[in-house]
């Protein structure tokens, strides 16, 4: 999609922008602009030079687009998205989207595979919108939570990891957690990243990759 932009002139930058807004039929907060030429007021029209600006439609934020795509997907699945909340996801590459839709827990699935599916599709749709130039770039992957299902699942993963860690501390022998996806493995790695006695690493090939908890060697 081509971005909508116009160039316009006026006796001041402000006037030039106002004229451009009329031509674009957009409110001021939906555009961005740059000055192409600084004009001069002159005197009685003598020696005056118009200000020239370029004004273009500001693309919506990827987060806005993501929220509206999710709203529509949830609606078509038979539910109503009531609230979304954006939060840091613990690292630079991810951002957490917490969504709430009454009665939609079934969509997340008992093993949360439905939630992971929604997350894959949401990220793919946002990347398409970015590629089409209909929203700004996001630069982060969205981690999706629905009605707290992911938070509860992550806590269950931490509980399993803590319990296995106790065993590793007691026996001094490395031990293996059950197969986990990339997100769950990261949850475990983060849990032990500053542990003076234990270290974690992943082994095996997707989709059977799992985390090993081992005593730190000297």
């Amino acid at each position: 999609m081509n971005r909508r932009e116009v160039e316009s002139e006026g006796r001041s930058a402000e006037e030039a922008i106002e004229r451009a807004l009329v031509r674009l039929d957009l409110p001021r907060d939906r555009v961005e602009w740059e000055q192409l030429e600084a004009g001069r007021p002159g005197f009685l029209g003598l020696g005056s030079r118009p200000f020239r600006v370029r004004v273009w439609e500001k693309l919506p934020e990827a987060t806005e687009v993501a929220a509206s795509l999710l709203t529509e997907v949830i609606r078509l699945a038979g539910f109503t998205l009531q609230r979304v909340e954006w939060a840091p996801a613990g690292d630079e590459e991810h951002v957490l989207l917490k969504a709430y839709a009454e009665g939609a827990d079934g969509l997340a699935g008992r093993h949360r595979d439905g939630l992971d599916a929604l997350q894959v599709l949401l990220n793919a749709m946002v990347q398409r919108a970015v590629k089409d130039g209909t929203c700004q770039a996001l630069g982060q992957r969205i981690v999706l939570d629905l009605n707290g299902a992911r938070a509860r699942r992550d806590e269950a993963v931490r509980a399993q990891a803590r319990s296995l860690a106790e065993q590793v501390r007691a026996t001094g022998q490395a031990a293996v957690l059950k197969t986990m996806n990339a997100h769950e493995r990261k949850v475990v790695h983060l849990l032990f990243q500053n542990d003076p006695e234990l270290s974690t690493h992943s082994e095996g090939e997707e989709p059977n990759r799992h985390v090993v908890i081992a005593p730190r060697s000297e």
Binding site: A77, G78, G106, L107, A108, G109, D113, G114, D116, A117, L118, V120, L121, A124, R128
Partner: peptide
């Protein structure tokens, strides 16, 4: 390719969502 995704991730996600939306 867009609908199937790398290693079938996208089509697999569509199937999973369809299943959960109407189990």
């Amino acid at each position: 390719g867009q609908v199937i995704g790398r290693q079938g991730r996208v089509i697999k996600a569509i199937r999973t969502l369809v299943h959960h939306a109407d189990p």
